[in-house]
Design a protein around this nucleic acid. Structure first.
Lengths: 250, 250
DNA sequence: ACCTGAACACCGTTCAAGT
DNA sequence: ACCTGAACACCGTTCAAGT
């Protein structure tokens, strides 16, 4: 009997040589199972039936490994652009596709959203978002800023979904605790996600179809909320302060 | 000469006994300086001129320490409610106050925003937000969900500000790189923050002042975006798809 | 070229022992 | 009651040595 190096209890891994892609895939499996902070170079090595130091021949360090995993997942974003649909529908599709991708790997995405470079200019998601915002007539110089705000808003809602904050906040009782039953109804996060999406689409629409020259009336109501030092493109059109009934449930 | 325990080079700390509050304050100083991931129980102990194990008599573990620091900072939220102003102004004030607090301790807040419990029901911020949303006539059962969405959107933008993503995204050139100068103009994040805020306030306003019964016309344009399994309160009013000119810069 | 064992410089935390 | 030294079970990573 020659000494054959193999996993002792029939786990049977590592008949294939180590690869950067294989390391990324195994790391993603561990992250999906136990979260990013539970991922360890040593645990990843044992999952691959390899020596911990062998990984460093294919990956420079742990940070680069995490970036590689995030880049690999980000490349899975589907690129169906829905070319001839109105821009509202295209933005809706982009956001919901992004959401399903986030929910497919929640542990990884909850971590990636905190990184400043989790969206790269060459990502298909960013390219599609830029192309979609080019359609409605936003001036070219403003497109990246509008796209950045869309990304920030959507990822903010997704972070709150992924880490459970949305669920906890939605179930915080307003004033009277323990009234009218347990009230543990599902927060229905998909419905809330669509609500935010529709709201910002409506706000964007309202700016695009503004009848005046962009300088809204009644600038005096909120004098401290002036246009600021930047260009005056995004000056907020002053809202009417009328408050009315909430649309009834039925 | 008796052996006096004192910092050897005149640093002169720890003439005061260890306290939970003192540990929290010192931890916040280190976090403000070097970030959350650079905070270490051992480094915190040397900053307090104490033995690392002494901290465990006042703080159960590192996680509880971080929660305590976050709670201490969250308690600094100013509680000026601006009672008689319209709800739009009160929401604006809440959001900008939250933003200045976030920018006062960016390292801590960028970390706290990823925690599911960084907003507690007894926080003055949450109480003020609930009270403000109670004014315009949102039904009580829906107030926590609207508040949760507001928190998610605002923290999403703040995360992107704090970690630099907003700055990076805003400077990504749309199609033609290297045109019309370096174009490294400041992204003017405060202006963008106000833009999102005004947009969601406008969206909320539009729902509150809706003339119809909440069931907008033209439900057939986006058939797959139906109301979903939840209650029909938040069914999106179907937008007009008209696209028009962006309001010109001048 | 690819892998590996030992070692280094750290962590958070436990525990028995001091005062 | 409060503090402390030693120790445990981990980390990421370096490096010289193997094949």
């Amino acid at each position: 009997m020659k000494k054959v190096r193999r996993a002792p209890r029939g786990t049977r891994k590592r008949d294939v040589p180590l690869t950067e892609a294989g390391i990324h895939a195994a790391a993603l499996r561990l992250i999906d199972a136990d979260g990013v902070e539970a991922l360890t170079m040593r645990k990843l090595a044992t999952a691959l039936d390899a020596n911990p130091m062998s990984l460093y021949h294919h990956v420079p360090n742990k940070d680069a490994l995490l970036r590689g995993v995030a880049r690999m997942v980000g490349a899975q974003f589907r690129t169906a652009t829905l070319e001839d649909a109105p821009w509202q529908e295209r933005i809706r599709l982009l956001a919901t596709d992004f959401r399903t991708l986030a929910h497919r790997h929640p542990n990884l995405m909850a971590h990636s959203f905190g990184q400043p470079d989790f969206i790269q200019p060459e990502d298909p998601f960013w390219a599609a978002l830029i192309a979609t915002l080019d359609a409605p007539g936003v001036p070219h110089a403003e497109i990246p800023q509008v796209a950045a705000l869309m990304c920030a808003v959507v990822t903010g809602v997704l972070i709150a979904e992924l880490n459970g904050a949305m669920h906890r906040w939605s179930n915080l009782q307003p004033t009277t605790p323990g009234k009218d039953g347990p009230s543990n109804a599902s927060p229905d996060e998909e419905r809330m996600f669509r609500l935010v999406l529709d709201t910002i689409i409506m706000g964007l629409e309202s700016r695009l179809t503004s009848d005046d020259d962009g300088q809204g009336p009644g600038r005096d109501v909120a004098p401290e909320a002036g246009p600021g030092p930047g260009e005056p493109i995004f000056v907020p059109r002053q809202q009417s302060v009328a408050s009315s009934r909430w649309p009834g449930p039925v």
